[in-house]
């Protein structure tokens, strides 16, 4: 095994460049070193001006999403040895405006997320003193997968619909809405329906499936969307046949 590998890193400093340029760095190639370790090596030893986000380095905080050799990845969970002999091309996540270097602007997602009301909605909130809302392991299993989203944005980066239609609510937000819709403690499906069933909601999705392929946590947002399509369609037909039986 060679003892070094080349990182080709996208640089974008708005004061210096009008569009990103690639810069190469030689970093040690060691067992267990993630792409992120390569980047922190660059920052600590070679060029302190390189900017990128990272925090937990254990694949749970969702900060360090990047495009590695064309694929959306968590850079803390993508290993240099898998790309040997290199070079490894590191770019910001696609489909997002770039603030600087590898740092993207996720304001769009942060604005869309509350629109799907990802919190428990109930007609009556029981007092805490009455104890927990009962939920069997099977009921938990209904939504658990969709509760695993770490908001890392890899799915948005992989989604061609999002790149063509920026108004698309997107995979993670819809999956999170479904996470609550399928939670036995929640009664808010009706409140989420208008946003989810809008043209910018589930119907914008054409089932490319790349979101689920990109997801590092096995959430399967594509599945969540397809399931909701069936729910929404059934619901619309019911409304058409029995207009008075709302809810």
């Amino acid at each position: 095994m060679a003892d070094e590998i080349t990182l080709e890193v996208a640089r974008y400093r708005p004061e210096l460049e009008s569009e990103p340029v690639m810069e190469s760095f030689q970093v040690p190639l060691r067992e267990h070193w993630a792409v992120l370790d390569g980047l922190t090596y660059v920052k600590d030893q070679l060029d302190g001006t390189l900017s990128f986000r990272w925090s937990c380095r254990m694949g749970i905080c969702g900060s360090c999403g990047m495009t590695v050799n064309g694929e959306p990845q968590l850079s803390c969970a993508t290993f240099l040895t898998d790309y040997a002999p290199g070079p490894v091309r590191v770019e910001p996540l696609r489909n997002f405006p770039v603030i600087r270097d590898l740092v993207i602007d996720i304001d769009d997602f942060m604005t869309k997320l509350p629109e799907v009301k990802p919190w428990i909605i109930r007609d009556v909130h029981s007092p805490v003193e009455e104890g927990e809302y009962l939920q069997t392991p099977q009921e938990l299993d209904e939504y658990q997968q969709f509760s695993m989203c770490i908001n890392c944005m890899l799915c948005y980066s992989a989604c061609p619909v999002y790149s063509l239609e920026p108004d698309f609510i997107g995979p993670a937000a819809i999956a999170l809405a479904q996470r609550y819709n399928l939670d036995s403690r929640d009664e808010g499906a009706e409140e989420r329906r208008a946003v989810l069933s809008s043209p910018e909601g589930i119907w914008a999705c054409t089932f490319v499936g790349e979101c689920s392929a990109a997801c590092p946590k096995g959430v399967d947002p594509a599945g969540a969307i397809q399931r909701y399509k069936l729910t929404a369609a059934t619901r619309s037909i019911k409304d058409l046949l029995m207009p008075r039986s709302r809810r």
């Binding site: 974008y12 708005p14 990103p20 061609p160 490319v208």
Partner: peptide, 21 residues
């Protein structure tokens, strides 16, 4: 000001899944 990567004309050839889509 941020940089927005332009969409390549043949972006749909980049991936089998995109082509299929």
């Amino acid at each position: 000001s941020t940089y927005q990567r332009p969409l390549a004309l043949f972006w749909w050839l980049e991936r089998r899944s995109y082509l299929l889509f």
